[in-house]
Design a protein around this nucleic acid. Sequence first.
DNA 1: TCACGATCCTAGCATCGCTAGACATCCGAG
DNA 2: CTCGGATGTCTAGCGATGCTAGGATCGTGA
Lengths: 189, 189
Amino acid sequence: MATQQRRERERAQRETLIVNAAREMAEADGWPAVTVRRLAERIEYSQPVLYSHFAGRGAIVDAVALLGIGELAASLEAARVGAAPGEELEAVAQAYLDFAAEHPAVFEAAFTLAEGLPFGPDAPDELKAGFAPLFAVFAPLAGDHDPEAVTEAGWAAIHGLAVLARDGRLRPRHQRERLAVLLEKFTST
Amino acid sequence: MATQQRRERERAQRETLIVNAAREMAEADGWPAVTVRRLAERIEYSQPVLYSHFAGRGAIVDAVALLGIGELAASLEAARVGAAPGEELEAVAQAYLDFAAEHPAVFEAAFTLAEGLPFGPDAPDELKAGFAPLFAVFAPLAGDHDPEAVTEAGWAAIHGLAVLARDGRLRPRHQRERLAVLLEKFTST
DNA sequence: TCACGATCCTAGCATCGCTAGACATCCGAG
DNA sequence: CTCGGATGTCTAGCGATGCTAGGATCGTGA
């Protein structure tokens, strides 16, 4: 029956409603404020409904993380293709730092809270899509090294910049200069 | 009276007992397993005793973080002075990665759980002591840039390598190669 | 119309961080 | 040596958390 399809459609809608609500609440008041009770009240359903969609609170965080990684991937790729020739690396790196600064809660979900996301060979498409633009800008700089290793090292450098800056570990007003150092170190020969 | 001094001595002993217990429990079963109740039972005191030493659970985590940062600083400095001339950077970087891999719970406390630690100008000595060996190996590579900015960028690169590897985001067997890439990028020219 | 199945909610459990108030213990003054 | 006060510790409990069992309610198809 068509009823079945409508049901599934409504279920899918409600699932994105949940994920979006969790994301907005986290971005507004931090992840500790995203409790199952408050989330349920926000979407105007009772708590057990959440558990019919997700295995638990952690699974909801993972869903936000996956969504965020997809957006980060799209943002990186957009920065790459929109950059002037020769400036792709800088554009991608800047996009990465901007994403971390503008969506701290999503970034936190993706890189420190998520626990159920598989990595390595059987990672979701969003994760591989995020690696692609990084590989595109770092691989040409590989020289004698393994292009993937260079990409991973470059990614790590940018990521470290993002997380240490977010936690207030670095001098706030020198982010631009730190990035310039990194770019020069990676591009020179 | 001398009684006062004995009291303070015993209090200090118990405080380190608490911090060490928290650290061991976290290293054994992860931070979520370090509850106030379990910690109290472990040290064979009731819960309120913990609150007479620390403002709350978070303050205990901060204490472990500070302790760990001190050890990390000592480890980095030892690696630097013990390295052959010209290999100080590699030794320090390797020590950083080793510390993160061997004490994941302490590393987590120091860099993702700690919330009450002050940074910037009025940071505790342990934090400044940790920056010193990094500055010592990175500043000579500054060239035209600000030495502190280069140090921060280099630290971020190593740190990113540590956290991404810890979370299983990077290919496990290529850590050595990634580090080699980083070292070459920073030392060339 | 009616019985069945899916959907949802109320109520509750165990556990968490934290705290008030009672109890015990130790110290120094008389 | 005794006793009052201060110090230290514990028992018991509060509000809130993540999660779940069981019953009520609704729509569906015969």
